[in-house]
Structure formats: structure tokens, C-alpha cells
């Protein structure tokens, strides 16, 4: 499925501000796997996702998706089969366009005919059924501009858009972190449901160790640009948040520094 091989990413190379964000990172993902990633600030979690999605080109190593080399493929080309959500709920939708227009943009991800009508009746019906599945009543507000919706609603729509045509890979970069707890819970539930129903191979960054253990079937811990822990199977099943924090202490000889973890 996804095969990340010895990738290294260095920012501000050969300057005083040089920073190695990823160092020889390798990761093999099986189809249908749902990996959660935890780690402190600046551990390289987002950089890893950005490299896979093509926002950054890696300095060394290569990335394969379904056997195809995508290391140097442009971001928008990869986006055809990689769905993506960011922490900032404003990033995933166009505020001055209506809900249905936003959804239609995602819908035509794979369509080739640029001069056909943007939203046909068939498209509209399909979009409505997808919106109904969210259970947020958005199917009755399809002509509303997305900018008028709340962050949670926008993130839910972005989630639908990213999975409208089932992607080979779904990348979630702390996509619930900017939402209030109740909404975050709801969006996370939706995420799990959609991923389960379509068996989408997923990589999710979270700062919440509890939900990292609760979601998916494999958990990675990153620190200083490396994957220092790879939990799966039975070992992962019996883990508690305290166990994970203890393991982190052993592996990195320091406390888990992410204060948001302590608060959540």
C-alpha cells in the first residue's frame, strides 16, 4: 500500500537555522490499516504527512503508493488519490462558495470533462444523500455559503469531501484539535464511521493519547524526526495512556512535553 523508505527532510539546509525534521523515516502500511501518530511538538508528525501528500519534497529517500513512485509527483496530482484534512477547519473549504459547490469540487476529483455542467441534478442528489449521512441537517442548506457555517460543520464537510470518491489514503493532521470537545468528539466519530465503512487506509495525527489508542489498529510515536515506537496487535490492545507515557520516558529519556496532552 503505502511504503515510505528512508526519507529525510531538512529545513533551511546549510544555514544556521538548519533543522532536521525527518531523519531516515521508514513506514510500511497495509491496505485498510488505520494508523494513529502521537508525539511532542516539532517531532516531525506533520512534516511526515506533508511529505506523503507532496506539500514538501523529501531530501532523501522515496515514497511508493500502491507500487507507484510518487516521490516527485506534484501535490495536486497526488491529491487525486490522497484525501487530506488539516487542523484549521477553514483550510478545507471555500468560504464564498455554497455547500453543494464545495462538495461538487470534491466530487469531480476523478472526472475528466472540464466543460460539463458543474453540478448536474444527479450530482445534487448524490451530494444530498452524502450530507444526510452526517446527520447535521446540512442537506437542507445546500445553497448556504460555507463561510457561514461553524468550524465543526466545515470540518465535517471537509471530511465528506476528502472521502467522496474513496481515496487510497486518508491523511488527518489533528483535524479535531481546533474544535470544541463535543464537536471534536462528533467529528472523530464520523471519521471512524467513514473510515470503517469504506475501509480507507488512514494516517491520523492526534495529540490525544487516549484517542490514539482508541482509534485505528496501530499507533506510532514520533520524536525528533524519528519513529521511536510502533505499537500494534496485542501489545497495543493492552496499553493504557500511562503505559504509553512511561514508554515514551524510557525511549527518549524525558517527559512527554506536549502540554495539550495533559489537559485533554
Amino acid at each position: 500500500m503505502l511504503s515510505v523508505n528512508n526519507i529525510t527532510k531538512i529545513f533551511n539546509k546549510k544555514t544556521v537555522n538548519e533543522r532536521v525534521a525527518l531523519e531516515n523515516v521508514s513506514l510500511q502500511m497495509e491496505p485498510g490499516e488505520f494508523i494513529t501518530i502521537i508525539g511532542g511538538n516539532g517531532a516531525g508528525k506533520s512534516t511526515l504527512l506533508n511529505c506523503i501528500a507532496g506539500s514538501y519534497l523529501v531530501d532523501e529517500g522515496y515514497i511508493l503508493l500502491d507500487g507507484e513512485n510518487i516521490t516527485f509527483q506534484k501535490e495536486h496530482k497526488r491529491a487525486r488519490y490522497i484525501g487530506r484534512l488539516f487542523q484549521d477547519p477553514l483550510k478545507g473549504t471555500a468560504p464564498n462558495m455554497t455547500i453543494e459547490e464545495n462538495m461538487a469540487l470534491a466530487y469531480m476529483r476523478t472526472a475528466k470533462k472540464p466543460f460539463s455542467i458543474g453540478i448536474s441534478k444527479k450530482d445534487r442528489d448524490y451530494i444530498r444523500t452524502r450530507l444526510e449521512s452526517l446527520g447535521l441537517g446540512l442537506e437542507n442548506r445546500m445553497k448556504t455559503k460555507v463561510g457561514l457555517l461553524s468550524g465543526g460543520q466545515r470540518q465535517a464537510i471537509t471530511l465528506l469531501m476528502a472521502t467522496m470518491t474513496t481515496p487510497k489514503l486518508l491523511l488527518l493532521d489533528e483535524h479535531t484539535a481546533a474544535l470544541d470537545p463535543a464537536t471534536a468528539e462528533k467529528v472523530l466519530e464520523l471519521t471512524k464511521q467513514i473510515v470503517r465503512e469504506n475501509t480507507i487506509t488512514t494516517l491520523m495525527i492526534t495529540h490525544n493519547i487516549a484517542s490514539a489508542l482508541d482509534c485505528g489498529n496501530r499507533t506510532l510515536m514520533m520524536e525528533q524526526g524519528k519513529i521511536i515506537l510502533d505499537l500494534q496487535g496485542e501489545q497495543r490492545g493492552s496499553m493504557t495512556v500511562e503505559d504509553v507515557l512511561e514508554l515514551f520516558r524510557q525511549k527518549s529519556n524525558r517527559e512527554f512535553d506536549n502540554d495539550r496532552v495533559l489537559l485533554s
Partner: peptide, 24 residues
């Protein structure tokens, strides 16, 4: 109102979104 036109409008509205949704 074509797909192309929608994509052009989205580019002006939110370039981040466009980049991550397979539109050039």
C-alpha cells in the same frame, strides 16, 4: 458554471483547499 469555472472560483476563494483537492 462548468466544472472548470467552479475550480477557478475555488482557487480565488481558498487556494489551500484547491491544492489538497487535486485541482491544479
Amino acid at each position: 458554471h462548468t466544472r472548470l469555472g467552479l475550480s477557478v472560483r475555488a482557487t480565488g476563494d481558498n487556494e489551500d483547499m484547491v491544492r489538497s483537492s487535486s485541482i491544479n
